[in-house]
Design a protein around this nucleic acid. Structure first.
Lengths: 145, 145
DNA sequence: CGCAGATATATAGCTTACTATGCATTTCAA
DNA sequence: TTGAAATGCATAGTAAGCTATATATCTGCG
C-alpha cells in the first residue's frame, strides 16, 4: 500500500507544501534576501510610514513576529523606525533607499513566481483558486476566534 | 487606495496564509502537541520502521529538518531510533506506544480540520483544489531542480 | 487630577523550516 | 583490495512563525 496517495489527498499537506515551494522559488530569485520582509515592502512601497501594528495586521502575523522581522530589516538597513509624534508608545516604520531597491526586486521575484505557478492553470482556474482559498481562510479564521 | 486587494490577488500570500491557519487550527485541537510530527505519524502508523531518509522524503522536507523533528520526538518519547543492521550509517525509526497514541489524536485533529475547511467548498471544488495544487507543486518542483 | 484598564511595542523561549558543513560508512572502480 | 566518491546522519547557524509576558504610554472615569 502506497501512502503517498493519502498525503496528496490531504488539503493541509498540499497547501503547506505549495506555500513552502513558493517561498523557496521566490528566495532563489533574490540576491541575498529572504521572503519574510515582502509583506512589509508591499505595505510601505506605495505609501507613507506606518506603525508596526498596522504592518502586522496587513501581513496577518502576530505582533512579535512583525517586531522580529522589523528588527532584522532595521539591522539590514531596509527600514527606519521613528517615534510617532502623536503616540509615545508607537513607532512609525518607513523604507530606506536601500529598502525601496530591495522591495522592487522582491516584487519582481514574486510576480515572476506567481506567473510561473499560475501557468499551470487556466485563467478561469486562477480565479477559482483564489476564490476557494479566500473561503478556506474565512472558515479557518472563524474557527480561530 | 486599499492595498488589501493586492494581497488577496497574490497566490503566494493566500496559499501561505491558508497553510498557517490550517496548522494553527490543528494545533488548537492537540493537547500539548504540535503539527510538526504529523508527517512522521502518517508514515509510521501503518507500517514498519523506516530510515530517516525515507521519512524526510515522504514529508518533503530537507534531511536536517527531519533530523531535528525526530530529535524532539525522541526527547518527548514518541519514537525510538534503532541501528539499521543492514547499514551502519542508518537508523530505523519506529513509534513508541505513546507515539501511536499521539499519532491517533493528531490524525483525528487533521481529519476534523480538513473537513472544517472543505465545508466551504462543493465536492467538485474539493477535487479541483487538490488537482490545482498538485499542478502548482509540479511546476514549482520543476523550477527548483 | 489620578489611577485603572487598554493599547503599542519589546523580549524570552519554543518550533519548524532552510543552507552549509562535518563525520562515518558504504560502494565502486582501478 | 584499496582509495575516491557517494551516501546517511548530525550539528551549527539563521529566519520566521507562535505564545506568554513585561514595559511604557495613553485614555477615560470617578
Amino acid at each position: 500500500m502506497d501512502l503517498s496517495y493519502d498525503r496528496k489527498q490531504s488539503t493541509g499537506y498540499m497547501v503547506n507544501l505549495t506555500a513552502r515551494l513558493m517561498v523557496r522559488a521566490i528566495e532563489r530569485r533574490l540576491t541575498g534576501g529572504t521572503a519574510g520582509p515582502m509583506p512589509v515592502f508591499l505595505a510601505l512601497l506605495n505609501g507613507d510610514a506606518q506603525p508596526q501594528k498596522e504592518l502586522a495586521r496587513s501581513a496577518a502575523v502576530e505582533q512579535p513576529t512583525m517586531a522580529n522581522t522589523l528588527n532584522r530589516m532595521e539591522r539590514d538597513g531596509l527600514i527606519e523606525r521613528t517615534p510617532d509624534p502623536a503616540d509615545g508608545r508607537s513607532m512609525l516604520i518607513s523604507l530606506t533607499k536601500l529598502g525601496r531597491q530591495q522591495a522592487a526586486q522582491a516584487m519582481d521575484a514574486a510576480t515572476t513566481v506567481n506567473a510561473l505557478a499560475l501557468a499551470a492553470l487556466t485563467p478561469q482556474e486562477r480565479t477559482q483558486l483564489l476564490d476557494m482559498l479566500q473561503r478556506l481562510i474565512g472558515v479557518l479564521e472563524q474557527d480561530g476566534s
